[in-house]
């Protein structure tokens, strides 16, 4: 087996080893629910290649707090990160936005990058939350790497409407078809789903 193949597994091993010191996945800070979660599913060779591609990578996190039984979403938040690898300087510029606040930093090593993009650290759900002691809670995170942008959707709509080679009828059909090009069309270069362990409301620290 090539050493390159073993590298991600080793990275995950080392990284999860470090999680021994990590706090509980869910805790209450005052009246706010706070999540701490490692997004281990993201640590793949393909993800690393993407992070090292030199292009700005957009990572969208949909963080849902669910309760059991029923699986109802009781809180939700978005996190958005732009990660750019400087191919010459060989470091990463990371800019993350959560609930209106933006945090920027530069990291030189890939494990450092993972700490920021492949984990939720003290992630606060917006609003006041009162957990029920008899219910269990868990966090579900959907991560989309480079989701299809609104700009591209608009561009595709324009292409469809302005049929250059087709007949007038093709233009009409394109206009009809462009009505279906909306936010519901989802797609991304990579999609990950991570769920935390379920925690009883009465056990929330």
């Amino acid at each position: 087996m090539k050493p390159g193949v073993l590298a991600p597994f080793l990275l995950v091993f080392l990284w999860t080893g470090a999680s021994q010191a990590q706090p509980a996945p869910l805790r209450m800070d005052g009246r706010q629910m706070v999540a701490n979660l490692k997004l281990s599913a993201m640590i793949t060779p393909a993800f690393e290649r993407k992070m090292r591609s030199g292009l700005t990578q957009r990572i969208l996190y949909r963080v849902l707090l669910r309760e059991d039984p029923g699986g109802r979403v009781v809180a939700a938040a978005l996190r958005y990160c732009n990660v750019t690898f400087d191919l010459w300087e060989e470091n990463w510029s990371v800019e993350c936005a959560v609930q209106g606040s933006v945090r920027s930093l530069v990291v030189a090593r890939y494990p450092q990058l993972l700490i920021h993009v492949a984990a939720l650290q003290d992630f606060r759900f917006p609003g006041v939350f009162q957990p029920s002691a008899g219910r269990r809670y868990w966090v579900e995170v959907e991560i989309q790497v480079n989701p299809i942008s609104r700009q591209l959707l608009d561009k595709v709509k324009m292409w469809l409407r302005q049929s250059e080679r087709g007949s007038q009828f093709s233009g009409y059909m394109g206009s009809v078809l462009s009505l279906f090009v909306d936010k519901s069309i989802s797609g991304a270069d990579m999609v990950f789903r991570v769920e935390s362990k379920k925690v009883w409301g009465r056990e929330l620290p």
Binding site: L152, V156, V181, S184
Partner: peptide, 18 residues
């Protein structure tokens, strides 16, 4: 070039979506 490749990939995903 790389951005063009990525955009092409996304356009094909949009095609599959519509």
């Amino acid at each position: 070039l790389a951005a063009g490749y990525e955009e092409s990939g996304h356009v094909l995903q949009i095609y599959q979506g519509i």
